[in-house]
Amino acid sequence: MSGLELDGVTKAFGAARAVDGVGLAVAEGAFLALLGPSGCGKTTLLRLVAGLERPSAGRIAIAGRVVADGGTFVEPEERGLGMVFQSYALWPHMSVADNVAFGLKVRRLPADKRRRRVADALAMVGLADFADRKPAQLSGGQRQRVALARCLALEPPLILLDEPLANLDAHLRETMQREFRRLHRETGATFVTVTHDQAEAMALADTIAVMHEGRLQQVAAPQDLYAAPATEMVARFIGRGALVPVAILEPAREGRLTVSLAGRTLAARGAATAPGPGRLVLRSETLSLSEALDAIPARVVDAVYRGGAHTLDLAIDGVEDVLVQVHSREARAPGTRVGLAVEDAWALAE
C-alpha cells in the first residue's frame, strides 16, 4: 500500500499554477524529499497533502484513504498525519510535556494513555528529562526535538516536514539529520520533507522528487539523480553540473554511447536513442588535468587555492559561456593551456 498517492494534483492561484498536474506514489515507510529552488511549488504541494490548501484538480490519498478529490475534502485535523513546521510552532506558555500532549488532548485520548505516549515520545527524541521546561528554556535543536516528539506521539502513518532544519546552525543540522534518519527507521512511518538544500535531501531521503515551476522533473534515489539526471534542470541543480554542448555520434547501447567534444571522441553514459546534438554533464570530481595526446584542450580562466588543492575554472576550446571546474594539487595561472581528462560523464539529448 502507498503511504501517499498523488494523481494529477494541481493548485492554481488565478492564472498561475503553483502545482501543475503532479502524479506521485510514495511507498509506505519511505522517506521522500521534495526538492527544488524557491517558488518551484514544493511547499504548496506539502500544504495540499496536509489539507492546508484545497487542490484545484486531482486526487490525494494517504495510507489508501482518499482525502481530496473532485467530491471529497478531509479537513487537516481528520487526516491522521503529523507535521513539523520550520518555526517549531510550540506554545510558549506550555511545558514541553503539555506541548507534546496537545494533539492527544484534541483527540480525547484518555489521560493514562496520553501520559505514556508523551513519555515514550520524549524518550525517543532524547528529552525525557526536559518534560517540565518551557520552550524558552530550550536550544533551537531541543525545540525541534519537541516539535518532532509532538508529532511522533500521535503515531501518524505519514509525517510531513516543512524545511525542518532551516533554523539550525550547521552542526545542529548534521545532528538532527542523524536523528531524523534514526526515528524514520524506528517508527516505520512514511516521511515527506520539503527542502531547497540538495545536500540535506540526499542525507535524509531514500527518494527525491525534484520540482521546477510546479512540475515534477524526476523522481529517483539520490544516487540515480546524481548519476543520471533526466533533464538539464536536474543536472544543473543536483551536484551543480556543467552542461557542455556535444554531438552524440551514435545511439546508446546498454547505457553507453560516444560523443564529440572539442574535436575529441569520448565515451559517456546516456540513454539517447538517436545521433544529434546533446549536452554532456561534467562534474569536478570526475575531471582531472592530463598531458595525454587525446586530452580535451582547454584554458585556465581562474584559479583559487582552497587549502590542499587549487580549484581551476577551465574554458574548453570551442565551447562558449560554459566553464568547468577541476581540482588540482598544482597551481595553474589564468591563461595557461591545459589538457582535460574525463573519467565519467552523462549525456543528455537535446
Rank of each mutant, 00 (worst) to 15 (best):
V194L: 10
R215H: 01
S288E: 11
L340E: 03
V246K: 04
R54D: 02
H310K: 12
H310G: 00
A221C: 11
P37Q: 12
G141Y: 08
A235V: 07
E320P: 07
I316F: 13
P135L: 08
I159E: 05
Q144N: 09
A119I: 04
E77K: 14
G23T: 15
L81K: 11
R332F: 13
E155M: 04
L161K: 01
E285S: 06
P334C: 07
E320W: 02
A203D: 07
D112Q: 11
V322L: 09
A101Y: 06
R269T: 06
A303M: 11
G29L: 02
L148W: 04
L35M: 09
E53Q: 01
A331K: 14
A68Y: 02
D294S: 10
G14E: 06
A309Q: 15
V194H: 06
A341V: 05
V84P: 00
H310Y: 15
V244F: 09
R17F: 09
R117A: 15
A292K: 07
H171G: 10
P251A: 12
G103Y: 10
A189L: 13
A18D: 01
V192T: 02
R59N: 12
R236H: 13
E28W: 03
L257M: 09
D162Y: 04
F73L: 13
P156G: 12
L261F: 15
V338A: 08
G8V: 01
V244S: 06
D313C: 07
R107F: 09
V281N: 14
A149V: 02
G308V: 08
I248W: 05
A15I: 03
P229K: 13
T231N: 01
F73V: 15
P156D: 04
S56H: 05
Q223A: 15
V84T: 00
L127P: 08
R264M: 02
V19L: 12
F73C: 04
R182E: 11
E285M: 05
R117Y: 07
A201K: 11
T72W: 05
I208M: 07
E285H: 12
V22A: 07
L287W: 09
E200P: 08
A247V: 15
L104T: 07
R329K: 15
L32M: 04
M202D: 04
E78Y: 08
L160H: 06
G41W: 02
L266R: 03
F180V: 15
T10Y: 01
G255P: 00
A119M: 04
Q142I: 01
A166F: 10
L161C: 08
F13E: 02
R215T: 10
F237P: 00
T72V: 15
A349N: 01
F191G: 07
H310P: 02
R143C: 01
G278C: 06
V118I: 03
L280R: 04
T195V: 00
L204A: 11
E254T: 13
A97C: 05
L266W: 05
A242F: 09
L280K: 02
A199K: 14
H184V: 12
I316G: 05
E53A: 06
L158Q: 11
A271F: 10
E232A: 14
E179Y: 03
D224T: 14
P229D: 06
A345S: 07
M202T: 11
R337Q: 11
A271G: 13
P110H: 00
L90V: 12
L168D: 04
S56C: 08
K134H: 14
L48A: 04
A12C: 14
